[in-house]
């Protein structure tokens, strides 16, 4: 399957369909989810209105983690099979995931101030998310520091895979270190403990964020492909001009 979509032509055909649908889907889902989550849904009996932050906070956290998983998997595919598109996917996923991680931390701080009485507490989940953000930043800084594009891709893929292996260990060590954050309440074996009046808008918001990430990744990948193509054309033009100039000298 990876090899099938490694063909840029085939990817372009897929992307041409997926990109507008993802953007459109994100727009529609946000149009439904934002008013539902931020205005219509009932306030919480304990957290009152501040519960609405959760509708942005939780999907950002999910997507930040999902994007890192995607980054690790596409890095693996690139490292083993050297499919350029996998590298482009990794390049597109990193900044998007970093923004989601940052959004998760900021909304968490805004929620923590009224609920916990502090902007920031050194709790296990917050700290893991902060470390995840650092992993994203390290990945992007490494890629930005290496000028050679192939080498940047190789080094980046190695770092992303190392981060993916390390992430569960970091998570475990930080859990070991301290736990204050409420335990997961949606994805559990015995079904969600969150009330349906909140679960529905949360689901719509999660889908909206997913559609947004998909749209961002596909758009960025297409832009990167076009950039590369433009660079090749530019180089060809320069070569032609040089050849013409040297012919002119010969005459």
């Amino acid at each position: 399957m990876f090899s099938y979509f490694a063909n840029p032509e085939r990817f372009e055909r897929l992307a041409r369909v997926v990109t507008p649908w993802a953007w459109g889907g994100a727009a529609v889902l946000f149009a439904i989810g934002l008013p539902w989550a931020l205005v219509i849904s009932p306030p919480d009996y304990q957290q009152s209105e501040t519960v609405r932050i959760m509708y942005v906070h939780v999907p950002s956290a999910w997507l930040a983690m999902a994007a890192y998983a995607g980054l690790g998997v596409s890095s693996f595919i690139y490292f083993i099979w050297r499919h350029n598109l996998a590298d482009l996917a990794a390049r597109a996923l990193a900044p998007a995931g970093a923004v989601f991680a940052a959004l998760c931390l900021v909304t968490g701080a805004l929620w923590g101030r009224p609920m916990w009485g502090a902007w920031w507490v050194w709790d296990a989940r917050l700290t893991s998310m902060l470390v995840l953000l650092l992993l994203y930043l390290g990945y992007m800084a490494l890629r930005a520091a290496i000028e050679d594009e192939k080498l940047a891709a190789r080094a980046g893929s190695i770092l992303a895979m190392a981060g993916l292996i390390n992430l569960p260990i970091i998570k475990f060590s930080v859990d070991w270190w301290n736990t204050l954050h409420q335990p997961a309440s949606v994805i559990r074996f015995d079904g969600p403990t969150i009330h349906a009046s909140k679960l529905w808008p949360l689901s719509v918001m999660a889908l909206a964020f997913t559609a947004l990430l998909t749209a961002l990744v596909f758009s960025t990948m297409r832009t990167l492909i076009l950039e590369r193509r433009a660079a090749v054309l530019e180089r060809k033009r320069e070569q032609r001009l040089e050849a013409e100039a040297s012919e002119g000298f010969a005459e």
């Binding site: 650092l134 520091a145 390390n166 260990i169």
Partner: peptide
């Protein structure tokens, strides 16, 4: 760059 890359991995 090394500090930024290594620090999160050294957390555990």
């Amino acid at each position: 760059l090394i500090a930024l890359i290594a620090a999160p991995l050294q957390v555990p």
